[in-house]
Design a protein around this nucleic acid. Sequence first.
DNA 1: CAGCATATTGCAACAGCGTTACGAATGCCC
DNA 2: GGGCATTCGTAACGCTGTTGCAATATGCTG
Lengths: 209, 209
Amino acid sequence: MARLKTHDEALRLRLLHRAAATVFDRGTAALSLRQLAADAKTSTTAVYSLFGSKAGLLSSLYQEAVRLFVERLATLHPTDDPAGDVIRIGLAYREYAVANPHLYAILFSDRSAQCPSDSDRPRETVETYRPLVDAVSRGQRAGQFSSASDPEVIALSVWGMAHGLVSLVLSGNEPQGLAVADCYERALRALVTGWRAGEEPVAGFANVT
Amino acid sequence: MARLKTHDEALRLRLLHRAAATVFDRGTAALSLRQLAADAKTSTTAVYSLFGSKAGLLSSLYQEAVRLFVERLATLHPTDDPAGDVIRIGLAYREYAVANPHLYAILFSDRSAQCPSDSDRPRETVETYRPLVDAVSRGQRAGQFSSASDPEVIALSVWGMAHGLVSLVLSGNEPQGLAVADCYERALRALVTGWRAGEEPVAGFANVT
DNA sequence: CAGCATATTGCAACAGCGTTACGAATGCCC
DNA sequence: GGGCATTCGTAACGCTGTTGCAATATGCTG
């Protein structure tokens, strides 16, 4: 056959680990395949036989980031206060993002630029999404949220707000003199309150077209 | 002195225009200074004498994107329904982002990676931010929003949600089977409702720690 | 046990990038 | 008209991701 494989699973994990470290402190742009291979005492060929390309490597890193993210969200167990669970998920979301800014950036950077096939995207996305939808569903059954909207819609709004506020901070676009950290939870609470069951719109802006 | 300058304002605008076009359809990564210079029948030196570097060029592009954004938001005139104005600003926000995805990406990509000096960032940010804060302030005076929170906080939550939902779509991370476009306005309305004056938190999640 | 076949691997080259150094070209002043 | 300061285009540097090719080392076969 041929010589023993050294481009094996162990090397794959070592490369993935080192790449994650680099991306974690200096971002994806600072990740050089040559440098990575040299650091791991191997050749660039290893990266290409194991990951296919830099995009493939980043895609694997994406899978890893998703796994950590899902793990983190899984530490939150449902309580008998679903609306509170929604808030807690939102806080954990922000905590993960702030703790691992570059992994978070990998998770939510442009997917079309780094994912070879889109086939695995929806599945991963829905996996991080489910706990939130579940909490909302339970909240609807408990009467804490309006049942007029699909739970997915309510969950998406929560996710959007969390993602938006976190992204503004991480990208350095939060407005001056205003710490997002201080009003993040209040904003989440206002949103949850707004989805309360039986809530009527504020008088005066029914039709804005 | 020297020979007549050809690296003048006219060339600067031409380069900026071409760069914007390229970034608009293929993103910042696809923008090559060599290609840009060749397309404009000039040399790379021109780009460097006019913009300093690729980061400088992108920074100028950022200024331009902000200007367009501010112009768009300025077309919305305050009405006697401030809460409705907030919704309208949110809708215009999304509309601009969807219409100019790459300019939007420039606006909200990592500032630290492309801005030579951070000195001009806060001023620009607050400029796009002010109409929203103003609308909230008027809404508070009209009793449409709680006065318990600073208008900046409420405005930030609206901005965060708009930015978050828009970013999820543009980055290809919206969950499958759910069109953000369909629930964007409803989400904004729920949030606005949640900030309604005198609103009490949903019973049962007062303390989540 | 010798030799072949073949999978595997590392080196080097390619095309492109942003950036910079430098020499040539140019128009003004004396 | 000659000297000069300024401006500009070319070419080079070091880097990137990627790929082709040659060397290598192993297991099977005769």
